[in-house]
Design a protein around this nucleic acid. Sequence first.
DNA 1: CTATCAAAGACTTCACATGCCTATAATAGC
DNA 2: GCTATTATAGGCATGTGAAGTCTTTGATAG
Lengths: 133, 133
Amino acid sequence: MKYSKATDYALHTMLFLTAATPNQPIGVQKLAERLGVSATYLSKILTKLVKAGMIESASGARGGYRLKRNWENISFLDIIHTIEGKASLFDCSLDHGSECAIQQVVLLAEEKMEDHLRNQTLAELAKKVEVDV
Amino acid sequence: MKYSKATDYALHTMLFLTAATPNQPIGVQKLAERLGVSATYLSKILTKLVKAGMIESASGARGGYRLKRNWENISFLDIIHTIEGKASLFDCSLDHGSECAIQQVVLLAEEKMEDHLRNQTLAELAKKVEVDV
DNA sequence: CTATCAAAGACTTCACATGCCTATAATAGC
DNA sequence: GCTATTATAGGCATGTGAAGTCTTTGATAG
Ligand code: SF4
Ligand code: SF4
Protein backbone atom coordinates (compact mmCIF):
# COMPACT_ATOMS: atom_id res chain seq x y z
CA MET A 1 0.00 0.00 0.00
CA LYS A 2 2.02 2.86 -1.25
CA TYR A 3 1.87 5.52 -3.90
CA SER A 4 3.94 4.66 -6.92
CA LYS A 5 7.06 6.59 -7.80
CA ALA A 6 5.24 7.83 -10.85
CA THR A 7 2.98 9.83 -8.55
CA ASP A 8 6.02 11.24 -6.83
CA TYR A 9 7.49 12.30 -10.16
CA ALA A 10 4.22 13.82 -11.31
CA LEU A 11 3.84 15.94 -8.20
CA HIS A 12 7.40 17.22 -8.42
CA THR A 13 7.10 17.92 -12.12
CA MET A 14 3.96 19.96 -11.64
CA LEU A 15 5.69 21.94 -8.93
CA PHE A 16 8.64 22.65 -11.18
CA LEU A 17 6.36 23.81 -13.94
CA THR A 18 4.73 26.38 -11.70
CA ALA A 19 8.10 28.03 -11.32
CA ALA A 20 8.83 28.07 -15.05
CA THR A 21 8.09 30.98 -17.32
CA PRO A 22 4.88 30.21 -19.17
CA ASN A 23 6.10 31.28 -22.58
CA GLN A 24 9.12 28.98 -22.59
CA PRO A 25 8.23 25.27 -22.53
CA ILE A 26 10.56 22.88 -20.73
CA GLY A 27 11.74 19.70 -22.40
CA VAL A 28 11.44 16.31 -20.78
CA GLN A 29 15.23 16.11 -20.74
CA LYS A 30 15.65 18.97 -18.31
CA LEU A 31 12.87 17.77 -16.07
CA ALA A 32 14.29 14.28 -15.96
CA GLU A 33 17.72 15.53 -14.96
CA ARG A 34 16.19 17.61 -12.22
CA LEU A 35 14.34 14.62 -10.81
CA GLY A 36 17.08 12.09 -11.36
CA VAL A 37 14.95 9.80 -13.47
CA SER A 38 15.23 8.58 -17.04
CA ALA A 39 13.71 10.82 -19.67
CA THR A 40 11.84 8.04 -21.43
CA TYR A 41 10.09 6.97 -18.29
CA LEU A 42 9.17 10.47 -17.27
CA SER A 43 7.87 11.02 -20.77
CA LYS A 44 5.13 8.47 -20.19
CA ILE A 45 4.04 10.20 -17.03
CA LEU A 46 3.98 13.56 -18.75
CA THR A 47 1.85 12.19 -21.54
CA LYS A 48 -0.69 11.11 -18.95
CA LEU A 49 -0.77 14.60 -17.52
CA VAL A 50 -1.25 16.03 -21.01
CA LYS A 51 -4.19 13.73 -21.68
CA ALA A 52 -5.70 14.72 -18.36
CA GLY A 53 -5.59 18.34 -19.53
CA MET A 54 -3.25 19.58 -16.83
CA ILE A 55 -0.32 20.52 -19.01
CA GLU A 56 0.16 21.04 -22.72
CA SER A 57 2.90 19.84 -24.99
CA ALA A 58 4.61 21.25 -28.06
CA SER A 59 6.49 19.01 -30.45
CA GLY A 60 9.47 20.02 -32.50
CA ALA A 61 12.37 22.33 -31.87
CA ARG A 62 11.94 24.57 -28.84
CA GLY A 63 9.06 22.40 -27.79
CA GLY A 64 8.35 20.91 -24.41
CA TYR A 65 5.77 21.09 -21.67
CA ARG A 66 4.08 23.93 -19.86
CA LEU A 67 1.10 24.38 -17.60
CA LYS A 68 -2.25 25.08 -19.10
CA ARG A 69 -4.32 28.10 -18.18
CA ASN A 70 -6.45 27.26 -15.18
CA TRP A 71 -3.63 25.41 -13.51
CA GLU A 72 -4.24 27.28 -10.27
CA ASN A 73 -7.27 25.11 -9.61
CA ILE A 74 -5.48 21.81 -10.01
CA SER A 75 -5.45 19.88 -6.75
CA PHE A 76 -3.22 17.19 -5.35
CA LEU A 77 -6.04 14.76 -5.76
CA ASP A 78 -6.32 15.55 -9.46
CA ILE A 79 -2.69 14.71 -10.01
CA ILE A 80 -2.78 11.57 -7.92
CA HIS A 81 -5.92 10.32 -9.60
CA THR A 82 -4.39 10.90 -13.00
CA ILE A 83 -1.47 8.66 -12.17
CA GLU A 84 -2.90 6.12 -9.75
CA GLY A 85 -6.36 5.86 -11.20
CA LYS A 86 -9.58 6.50 -9.37
CA ALA A 87 -10.17 3.02 -8.02
CA SER A 88 -11.02 2.69 -4.37
CA LEU A 89 -8.53 1.50 -1.79
CA PHE A 90 -10.82 -1.31 -0.83
CA ASP A 91 -12.64 -3.58 -3.19
CA CYS A 92 -14.07 -6.67 -1.61
CA SER A 93 -14.82 -9.35 -4.16
CA LEU A 94 -18.37 -9.89 -2.94
CA ASP A 95 -20.24 -6.63 -2.78
CA HIS A 96 -22.92 -7.12 -0.17
CA GLY A 97 -24.50 -3.76 -0.74
CA SER A 98 -23.90 -0.26 0.50
CA GLU A 99 -25.04 -1.02 4.03
CA CYS A 100 -21.96 -3.18 4.64
CA ALA A 101 -20.22 -1.84 7.73
CA ILE A 102 -16.69 -2.80 6.77
CA GLN A 103 -16.90 -1.04 3.45
CA GLN A 104 -18.46 2.01 5.02
CA VAL A 105 -15.65 2.47 7.49
CA VAL A 106 -12.83 2.10 5.03
CA LEU A 107 -14.48 4.13 2.28
CA LEU A 108 -15.29 6.92 4.68
CA ALA A 109 -11.72 6.99 5.87
CA GLU A 110 -10.58 7.20 2.28
CA GLU A 111 -12.89 10.13 1.64
CA LYS A 112 -11.38 12.00 4.57
CA MET A 113 -7.99 11.67 2.96
CA GLU A 114 -9.26 12.67 -0.45
CA ASP A 115 -10.99 15.70 0.96
CA HIS A 116 -7.71 16.96 2.24
CA LEU A 117 -5.93 16.29 -1.03
CA ARG A 118 -8.73 17.95 -2.96
CA ASN A 119 -8.42 21.14 -0.95
CA GLN A 120 -4.72 21.54 -1.61
CA THR A 121 -4.29 23.34 -4.88
CA LEU A 122 -1.14 23.59 -6.90
CA ALA A 123 -1.24 27.36 -6.53
CA GLU A 124 -1.07 27.13 -2.74
CA LEU A 125 1.82 24.75 -2.97
CA ALA A 126 3.70 27.05 -5.32
CA LYS A 127 3.26 29.91 -2.87
CA LYS A 128 4.75 27.92 -0.02
CA VAL A 129 7.76 26.68 -1.87
CA GLU A 130 10.55 28.62 -3.45
CA VAL A 131 11.74 26.63 -6.40
CA ASP A 132 14.66 27.53 -8.56
CA VAL A 133 14.59 25.84 -11.93
CA MET B 1 -2.59 1.80 -4.64
CA LYS B 2 -4.90 -0.63 -3.05
CA TYR B 3 -5.18 -2.63 0.10
CA SER B 4 -4.16 -6.23 -0.37
CA LYS B 5 -6.64 -9.05 -0.18
CA ALA B 6 -4.88 -10.18 2.95
CA THR B 7 -6.18 -7.07 4.68
CA ASP B 8 -9.65 -7.88 3.44
CA TYR B 9 -9.40 -11.39 4.83
CA ALA B 10 -8.04 -10.18 8.15
CA LEU B 11 -10.88 -7.71 8.66
CA HIS B 12 -13.49 -10.30 7.86
CA THR B 13 -11.88 -12.90 10.05
CA MET B 14 -11.78 -10.56 13.01
CA LEU B 15 -15.43 -9.78 12.48
CA PHE B 16 -16.30 -13.46 12.43
CA LEU B 17 -14.40 -14.08 15.61
CA THR B 18 -16.38 -11.43 17.45
CA ALA B 19 -19.49 -13.49 16.80
CA ALA B 20 -17.95 -16.74 17.98
CA THR B 21 -18.26 -18.10 21.47
CA PRO B 22 -15.04 -17.30 23.33
CA ASN B 23 -14.63 -20.73 24.90
CA GLN B 24 -14.76 -22.62 21.61
CA PRO B 25 -11.87 -21.78 19.26
CA ILE B 26 -12.50 -21.84 15.51
CA GLY B 27 -10.15 -23.69 13.20
CA VAL B 28 -8.64 -22.12 10.15
CA GLN B 29 -10.54 -24.60 8.01
CA LYS B 30 -13.92 -23.23 8.94
CA LEU B 31 -12.82 -19.66 8.58
CA ALA B 32 -11.35 -20.33 5.17
CA GLU B 33 -14.54 -21.95 3.92
CA ARG B 34 -16.53 -19.00 5.16
CA LEU B 35 -14.32 -16.54 3.30
CA GLY B 36 -13.85 -18.65 0.20
CA VAL B 37 -10.09 -18.68 0.47
CA SER B 38 -7.54 -21.44 0.84
CA ALA B 39 -6.81 -22.52 4.39
CA THR B 40 -3.06 -22.48 3.95
CA TYR B 41 -3.04 -18.90 2.83
CA LEU B 42 -5.40 -17.72 5.53
CA SER B 43 -3.22 -19.49 8.03
CA LYS B 44 -0.36 -17.13 7.33
CA ILE B 45 -2.57 -14.13 7.89
CA LEU B 46 -3.85 -15.55 11.15
CA THR B 47 -0.33 -16.14 12.37
CA LYS B 48 0.40 -12.46 11.80
CA LEU B 49 -2.61 -11.53 13.88
CA VAL B 50 -1.46 -13.86 16.63
CA LYS B 51 1.99 -12.31 16.70
CA ALA B 52 0.40 -8.88 16.88
CA GLY B 53 -1.42 -10.02 19.98
CA MET B 54 -4.93 -9.62 18.61
CA ILE B 55 -5.97 -13.24 18.71
CA GLU B 56 -4.61 -16.33 20.36
CA SER B 57 -4.12 -19.78 18.95
CA ALA B 58 -4.34 -23.28 20.41
CA SER B 59 -2.62 -26.19 18.75
CA GLY B 60 -3.81 -29.74 18.82
CA ALA B 61 -7.21 -31.30 18.74
CA ARG B 62 -10.08 -28.90 19.37
CA GLY B 63 -7.65 -26.09 18.84
CA GLY B 64 -8.06 -23.02 16.70
CA TYR B 65 -8.25 -19.29 17.05
CA ARG B 66 -10.15 -16.96 19.32
CA LEU B 67 -10.03 -13.32 20.29
CA LYS B 68 -7.91 -12.23 23.16
CA ARG B 69 -9.26 -10.34 26.10
CA ASN B 70 -9.15 -6.64 25.36
CA TRP B 71 -10.32 -7.18 21.82
CA GLU B 72 -12.92 -4.45 22.18
CA ASN B 73 -10.22 -1.84 21.85
CA ILE B 74 -8.77 -3.16 18.62
CA SER B 75 -9.23 -0.64 15.83
CA PHE B 76 -9.39 -0.95 12.09
CA LEU B 77 -6.05 0.74 11.89
CA ASP B 78 -4.49 -1.87 14.16
CA ILE B 79 -5.60 -4.66 11.87
CA ILE B 80 -4.57 -2.86 8.71
CA HIS B 81 -1.17 -1.97 10.11
CA THR B 82 -0.60 -5.55 11.14
CA ILE B 83 -1.11 -6.76 7.60
CA GLU B 84 0.05 -3.87 5.45
CA GLY B 85 2.84 -2.63 7.66
CA LYS B 86 3.17 0.85 9.05
CA ALA B 87 5.08 2.43 6.20
CA SER B 88 3.83 5.75 4.94
CA LEU B 89 1.93 6.09 1.70
CA PHE B 90 4.52 8.47 0.42
CA ASP B 91 8.24 8.03 0.64
CA CYS B 92 10.26 10.31 -1.55
CA SER B 93 13.78 9.06 -2.06
CA LEU B 94 15.36 12.37 -1.13
CA ASP B 95 14.12 13.55 2.19
CA HIS B 96 14.52 17.30 2.17
CA GLY B 97 13.44 17.72 5.73
CA SER B 98 10.15 18.10 7.52
CA GLU B 99 9.44 21.52 6.07
CA CYS B 100 8.88 20.04 2.62
CA ALA B 101 5.45 21.13 1.45
CA ILE B 102 4.70 18.14 -0.74
CA GLN B 103 5.37 15.69 2.06
CA GLN B 104 3.38 17.74 4.52
CA VAL B 105 0.26 17.71 2.37
CA VAL B 106 0.29 14.02 1.62
CA LEU B 107 1.26 12.95 5.11
CA LEU B 108 -1.39 15.13 6.65
CA ALA B 109 -3.98 13.64 4.36
CA GLU B 110 -2.85 10.20 5.35
CA GLU B 111 -3.22 11.09 9.01
CA LYS B 112 -6.79 12.15 8.42
CA MET B 113 -7.54 8.73 7.04
CA GLU B 114 -5.74 6.96 9.85
CA ASP B 115 -7.55 9.00 12.45
CA HIS B 116 -10.82 7.70 11.14
CA LEU B 117 -9.59 4.12 11.06
CA ARG B 118 -8.19 4.46 14.54
CA ASN B 119 -11.52 5.58 15.95
CA GLN B 120 -13.41 2.61 14.60
CA THR B 121 -13.13 -0.22 17.05
CA LEU B 122 -13.92 -3.81 16.43
CA ALA B 123 -16.55 -3.67 19.15
CA GLU B 124 -18.48 -0.94 17.33
CA LEU B 125 -18.33 -2.92 14.14
CA ALA B 126 -19.63 -6.03 15.85
CA LYS B 127 -22.55 -4.06 17.20
CA LYS B 128 -23.56 -2.84 13.76
CA VAL B 129 -23.37 -6.16 12.03
CA GLU B 130 -25.30 -9.29 12.73
CA VAL B 131 -23.09 -12.18 11.83
CA ASP B 132 -24.13 -15.78 11.89
CA VAL B 133 -21.19 -18.12 12.04
C1' DC C 1 15.82 20.17 -45.11
C1' DT C 2 17.44 19.25 -40.68
C1' DA C 3 17.84 19.24 -35.90
C1' DT C 4 14.97 18.93 -32.10
C1' DC C 5 11.33 17.33 -29.53
C1' DA C 6 6.86 14.61 -28.05
C1' DA C 7 4.01 10.18 -28.64
C1' DA C 8 3.47 5.46 -28.81
C1' DG C 9 4.43 0.78 -28.39
C1' DA C 10 7.17 -3.33 -27.50
C1' DC C 11 10.19 -5.23 -24.47
C1' DT C 12 12.87 -6.53 -20.13
C1' DT C 13 13.49 -6.69 -15.27
C1' DC C 14 12.14 -6.88 -10.67
C1' DA C 15 9.27 -6.99 -6.54
C1' DC C 16 5.48 -8.61 -4.35
C1' DA C 17 0.90 -10.66 -3.59
C1' DT C 18 -1.40 -14.80 -3.80
C1' DG C 19 -1.61 -19.44 -3.25
C1' DC C 20 -0.09 -24.40 -2.71
C1' DC C 21 2.53 -28.20 -0.60
C1' DT C 22 5.19 -30.46 2.91
C1' DA C 23 7.35 -31.13 7.25
C1' DT C 24 7.37 -30.20 12.16
C1' DA C 25 5.52 -29.34 16.69
C1' DA C 26 1.92 -29.24 20.02
C1' DT C 27 -2.25 -31.04 22.30
C1' DA C 28 -6.74 -33.51 23.39
C1' DG C 29 -8.82 -37.89 23.82
C1' DC C 30 -8.39 -42.73 24.06
C1' DG D 1 1.94 -44.08 24.81
C1' DC D 2 -0.76 -43.73 20.39
C1' DT D 3 -3.49 -41.32 17.16
C1' DA D 4 -6.05 -37.76 15.23
C1' DT D 5 -6.26 -33.02 14.93
C1' DT D 6 -4.49 -28.55 14.55
C1' DA D 7 -1.20 -24.56 14.33
C1' DT D 8 3.56 -23.03 12.62
C1' DA D 9 7.18 -22.63 9.46
C1' DG D 10 9.44 -22.81 5.20
C1' DG D 11 9.99 -23.17 0.55
C1' DC D 12 8.10 -23.14 -4.18
C1' DA D 13 5.17 -21.58 -8.15
C1' DT D 14 2.52 -18.20 -10.46
C1' DG D 15 0.63 -13.93 -11.83
C1' DT D 16 0.44 -9.13 -11.87
C1' DG D 17 1.98 -4.66 -12.00
C1' DA D 18 5.66 -1.11 -11.40
C1' DA D 19 9.89 0.69 -13.19
C1' DG D 20 12.79 1.37 -16.72
C1' DT D 21 14.96 0.89 -21.68
C1' DC D 22 14.81 1.01 -26.68
C1' DT D 23 13.05 2.11 -31.12
C1' DT D 24 9.94 4.12 -34.42
C1' DT D 25 6.93 7.62 -35.81
C1' DG D 26 5.32 12.22 -36.30
C1' DA D 27 5.36 17.18 -35.63
C1' DT D 28 7.69 21.79 -35.86
C1' DA D 29 11.00 25.78 -35.60
C1' DG D 30 14.66 27.75 -38.02
S1 SF4 E 1 -19.21 -7.99 4.23
FE1 SF4 E 1 -18.83 -5.99 3.26
S2 SF4 E 1 -16.61 -5.94 2.92
FE2 SF4 E 1 -17.16 -8.08 3.33
S3 SF4 E 1 -17.49 -8.99 1.28
FE3 SF4 E 1 -19.51 -8.29 2.02
S4 SF4 E 1 -19.69 -6.19 1.17
FE4 SF4 E 1 -17.52 -6.73 1.03
S1 SF4 F 1 10.81 18.17 -2.24
FE1 SF4 F 1 9.78 17.07 -0.52
S2 SF4 F 1 8.74 15.36 -1.53
FE2 SF4 F 1 10.24 16.12 -3.00
S3 SF4 F 1 12.08 14.87 -2.68
FE3 SF4 F 1 12.32 16.71 -1.38
S4 SF4 F 1 11.46 16.10 0.62
FE4 SF4 F 1 10.72 14.57 -0.86
